[in-house]
Amino acid sequence: MKRRIFIKSGIITTTALGLIPSSVFAVPEYSYEELIGKGNPKLFGDAINLRKEAYEAFIAMKKAAAAENLNIKIVSSYRDFFRQKSIWERKYKQYTGNGMTQEQAISKIIEYSTIPGTSRHHWGTDIDIIDSNAKYPGNDVLDPVKFEGKGPFRPLKVWLDKNAVTYGFYLVYTDRPGRKGFKYEPWHYSYRPLSLPMLEAYKALDVKHIITTEKVAGAAHFSDSFVQRYRRENILDINPDLLP
């Protein structure tokens, strides 16, 4: 039987997490399977699918936004390894089928999508959100343009900029100058009190082992240098407030 590997991330203080009772505590242990999207976390909320604490914080945030006539809708939350793998391989097939080399396809995919086993959406702490009260054309709702200027989700973005951290949610992939990795995602928020220790635990894992073991499309091109850069830029070059 396959042995479950557990990762312990140490001690984190109130200052690091915010919104946590004023005491120092041991961080929970997370299994290897749990961190790469192959676990079975207990999730809460119909069409919400978050860990209990993140779910409760989201409901509180949603209620507060509703008072401003904003209806926060989750477009994506928890995704397991196999769902992420299907997204990855669909895009890989599409891009290579349109004439891209395998290396070009990989570079294109990781503008916005993660390699299976490396997604923050595996943790039940992260959400992609829009305002379902807004009127918008087409089906491509996760478009940065829609969150800026006169875009339909601009009022929600303004509200989130002022209020999201009150509920423990932080933007992950910011528009900070010089940030590398995934492109700016004004819709992607992470519940910091849980995702912070989970990222700390994840940092102890061997990323190359994770992304090559399952033989996902293009894995032959995940060289050591590619993996090092992907870990540094796509996994760790995020909002500094979400770094352990």
Results as ranks from 00 to 15, higher is better:
Arg3Gln: 12
Ile5His: 11
Ile12Asp: 09
Thr14Ser: 14
Thr15Pro: 00
Thr15Asn: 07
Ile20Ala: 08
Ile20Gln: 10
Pro21Arg: 14
Ser23Pro: 00
Ser23Met: 11
Phe25Cys: 01
Pro28Val: 02
Glu29Ile: 09
Tyr30Ala: 14
Ser31Gly: 15
Tyr32Gly: 08
Glu33Ser: 15
Glu33Cys: 11
Pro41Cys: 03
Lys42Asn: 13
Leu43His: 04
Leu43Cys: 06
Phe44Ile: 00
Gly45Trp: 05
Gly45Cys: 07
Ala47His: 10
Ala47Thr: 06
Ile48Asn: 01
Ala54Ile: 06
Glu56Trp: 05
Ala57Leu: 04
Ala60Val: 00
Met61Val: 08
Lys63Glu: 14
Ala64Met: 08
Ala65Pro: 11
Ala66Ile: 01
Ala67Leu: 09
Ile74Arg: 09
Ser77Val: 01
Ser77Gln: 04
Ser77Thr: 01
Phe82Val: 11
Glu89Tyr: 05
Lys93Tyr: 10
Gln94Glu: 14
Tyr95Val: 03
Thr96Glu: 04
Met100Tyr: 12
Gln104Gly: 15
Lys108Gln: 15
Glu111Met: 06
Glu111Asn: 10
Tyr112Leu: 11
Ile115Met: 07
Pro116His: 13
Thr118Ile: 09
His121Gly: 10
Trp123Val: 10
Gly124Asn: 09
Ile127His: 07
Ile127Tyr: 09
Asp128Gly: 02
Ile129Met: 05
Ile129Gln: 08
Ser132Phe: 10
Ser132Ile: 05
Tyr136Asp: 09
Tyr136Pro: 02
Gly138Ile: 15
Asp140Val: 05
Asp140Lys: 13
Asp140Ser: 12
Val141Glu: 12
Lys146Val: 02
Gly151Ser: 11
Pro152Gly: 09
Pro152Phe: 03
Asn163Glu: 04
Tyr167Glu: 10
Phe169Leu: 12
Tyr170Gly: 09
Thr174Phe: 12
Gly181Gln: 01
Gly181Leu: 05
Phe182Trp: 06
Tyr184Arg: 07
Trp187Leu: 04
Tyr189Cys: 04
Arg192Glu: 03
Pro193Ser: 08
Leu196Asn: 02
Glu200Gly: 10
Tyr202Arg: 14
Ala204Pro: 00
Ile211Ala: 01
Thr213Pro: 00
Glu214Leu: 00
Lys215Ile: 00
Lys215Gln: 08
Ala219Asp: 03
Ala220Glu: 15
Phe222Glu: 01
Phe222Trp: 05
Val227Arg: 02
Val227Leu: 02
Arg231Asn: 00
Arg232Thr: 07
Leu236Phe: 09
Asp241Gly: 08
Leu242Trp: 03
Leu242Ser: 01
